[in-house]
């Protein structure tokens, strides 16, 4: 059944979009990520304009992180203070990201920027996660796994503006936290991703936030950055398609429930290994776009319409 999208101005197969939302929802429920990094490329692949695909991720990710946040909130697994510090950086990053997005769209380089950023970002993060989890899986019986050495400080621990986060059990400077959140907010607005798959490892590996707090806190901050992204994108480029978002949300919400159940039975290292490989596959898919000669070298975009 076809449905006409009012902002993308094209008809799409309703069940195809619902199915895509569901499949990505399944994966996102399984890994506790937003899934934007899979959904945006899929939408572009079925012919939705890149601008609409990216901008419409906002409400879709907001809906799925709302469900997730509520579940973690009931379990008291959110450090609100940490989330709000991250949010401050995230909002600034999102605003800058949307401005950059609009600028690139005017210059006609948006597709290239999206593709290249996917290659670099996904390639790096995917390789890191795969490498780390493969190593962990291989020497899971090794008792000499590196532990935090008491008394040794990392470089950012000397920074001012130190804050104490009770639930997360941290005492660190707010500067690196805001910085990381800003970078992720920027990437999120440009690429149509929530950034959970970067924020979660960053909080665990760099800031040593306990694993039971990290996912809820990350979901909570993503919820608000995505609301901001939706409003910023709507206000500046009018590319948020309500109908497309609704289809994705409904599909995603159902998929996530089944994914969460499937994810509960997975072991930690294999779980991360699979996530790492999944991210790498997306990076390779985009890399082939940039590094192989295109079948059609030309593209034509309508830039103005006289109605």
């Amino acid at each position: 059944m076809e449905i006409y999208l009012p902002i993308a101005e094209m008809p799409v197969d309703m069940f195809l979009i619902l199915g895509m939302g569901m499949a990505v929802g399944f994966i996102s429920g399984m890994f506790g990520i937003g899934g934007g990094f899979l959904l945006t490329p899929l939408l572009i692949f079925v012919g939705i304009p890149a601008a609409v695909a990216v901008a419409t991720q906002g409400p879709q990710i907001a809906a799925s992180s709302m469900t997730g946040s509520l579940a973690y909130w009931r379990r008291r697994a959110i450090d609100f203070k940490l989330a709000f510090v991250l949010l401050a950086g995230g909002l600034v990053g999102t605003l800058l990201g949307v401005l950059f997005f609009n600028k690139m769209q005017r210059l006609g380089q948006l597709d290239t920027v999206i593709t290249l950023s996917y290659v670099v970002l996904m390639g790096t993060v995917g390789a890191l996660i795969t490498w780390e989890s493969a190593k962990a899986a291989l020497r899971k019986n090794d008792k000499n796994a590196p532990k935090r050495i008491a008394g040794r400080h990392r470089w950012f621990e000397g920074l001012p503006l130190k804050m104490r986060f009770h639930r997360a059990g941290m005492y660190v400077s707010a500067i690196p936290l805001v910085g990381v959140a800003m970078l992720i907010g920027f990437a999120g607005a440009v690429l149509g991703i929530g950034g959970g798959f970067i924020l979660v490892p960053a909080l665990i590996y760099i800031f040593r936030v306990p694993a039971n707090i990290v996912v809820g806190t990350s979901l909570f901050q993503i919820l608000f950055t995505m609301i901001a992204a939706t409003i910023f994108h709507s206000a500046t480029n009018q590319s948020v398609d309500l109908f497309l978002a609704l289809l994705l949300m409904v599909g995603g919400v159902f998929g996530a429930q089944f994914g969460a159940r499937a994810g509960a039975n997975l072991r930690g290292e294999y779980f991360r290994l699979m996530l790492g490989l999944l991210i790498l596959i997306v990076a390779v898919r985009f890399a082939t776009d940039v590094f192989t000669p295109p079948r059609e070298a030309f593209s034509a975009t309508q830039t103005e319409t006289g109605r």
């Binding site: 799925s64 709302m66 939706t230």
Partner: peptide, 14 residues
């Protein structure tokens, strides 16, 4: 429009 879309998203998530 953006605010309304976000609100719908929150509602569906809830």
């Amino acid at each position: 429009y953006g605010a309304a879309t976000s609100l719908i998203a929150l509602l569906i998530g809830w």
